[in-house]
């Protein structure tokens, strides 16, 4: 579903990502780990096509099509969705109004969607204005539920979420990624940045990658990677490209 070939990305004339190669098949969810500042968020932003990161070399292919130079909204139309870690506040734009625009003709009401995430009270608020950390995450997930993308980029879905809401978030994300469907019927996929691995309590990931200093230094089983990192830190990943 998503193939990244030999990708080099600069931010403000400095190369942040070097020679990234990544392949995620239809129905697969992968996790991306790595120390702070290693370039994880930059990679997600480059896949979505944001103007901050600039691709200087390489290809991003989605559903067999080269999307490297495609505008953000066309990528969204093709089925890529993103959960922001720190989304901007937009004054005067109500969350409910945005959801109605994103919904585009789909029958279910916004209220029904909101109820599933205890978000009804926030529909009438300016998007992200004064939202708590947990509310931001739930609002992001709610937007994705309404948008129904085929492939999701999730930037630290667990950060700032309290324990009670973590279960709600985890289950909602698992549902978005069709983890509740049988493997053979699963069509949706995603790439999740996680520091803590808590999200893995709610869904199984099909692959894991460790990004260090802008390079993917290790591929493998996500739980194994997490175990090694917890025990010996990311330095251990440098020694072992395959865990």
């Amino acid at each position: 579903m998503l193939e990244i070939e030999d990708l080099h990305v600069e931010v403000g004339n400095k190369e942040i990502l070097h020679d990234i190669n990544l392949r995620i098949e239809k129905g697969e969810t992968h996790v991306l780990m790595g120390p702070n500042g290693s370039g994880k968020s930059t990679l997600l932003m480059a896949i979505m096509g944001f103007s901050g990161p600039r691709v200087t070399k390489g290809l991003i292919v989605f559903k067999g099509k080269d999307i490297t130079d495609m505008p953000v909204n066309e990528r969204a139309k093709m089925g890529i969705g993103i959960m922001f870690q720190r989304p901007p506040t937009i004054a005067g734009l109500k969350l409910g109004k945005l959801l109605n625009v994103v919904k585009r003709g789909n029958d279910q009401t916004i209220e029904d969607y909101a109820k599933s995430l205890n978000m009804e009270a926030l529909l009438n608020r300016d998007i992200n204005r004064g939202f708590s950390g947990g509310e931001i995450k739930r609002s992001e997930v709610l937007q994705l539920i309404v948008q129904k993308p085929d492939f999701m980029l999730l930037d630290e879905p667990e950060s700032g979420v309290d324990l009670e809401n973590m279960a709600l978030m985890g289950r909602s994300i698992a549902h978005l990624l069709e983890k509740d469907r049988h493997l053979v019927h699963r069509e949706k996929g995603g790439l999740i940045i996680t520091h803590t691995g808590y999200i893995l309590d709610y869904l199984d990931a099909d692959g894991g990658h460790v990004l260090i200093d802008g390079e993917i230094r290790c591929h493998g089983n996500p739980r194994e990677i997490l175990k090694v990192v917890k025990r010996s830190g990311y330095r251990e990943c440098l020694k072992c490209p395959q865990i």
């Binding site: 953000v72 969705g81 922001f84 989304p87 901007p88 937009i90 734009l93 625009v101 585009r104 300016d126």
Partner: peptide, 20 residues
């Protein structure tokens, strides 16, 4: 770009932000 990532065109996004 936040709104474009939700599928709005650049023009729609701009108009939505101005309206807000």
């Amino acid at each position: 770009e936040y709104l474009m990532a939700r599928g709005l065109t650049e023009e729609e996004s701009t108009a939505t932000i101005i309206r807000g």
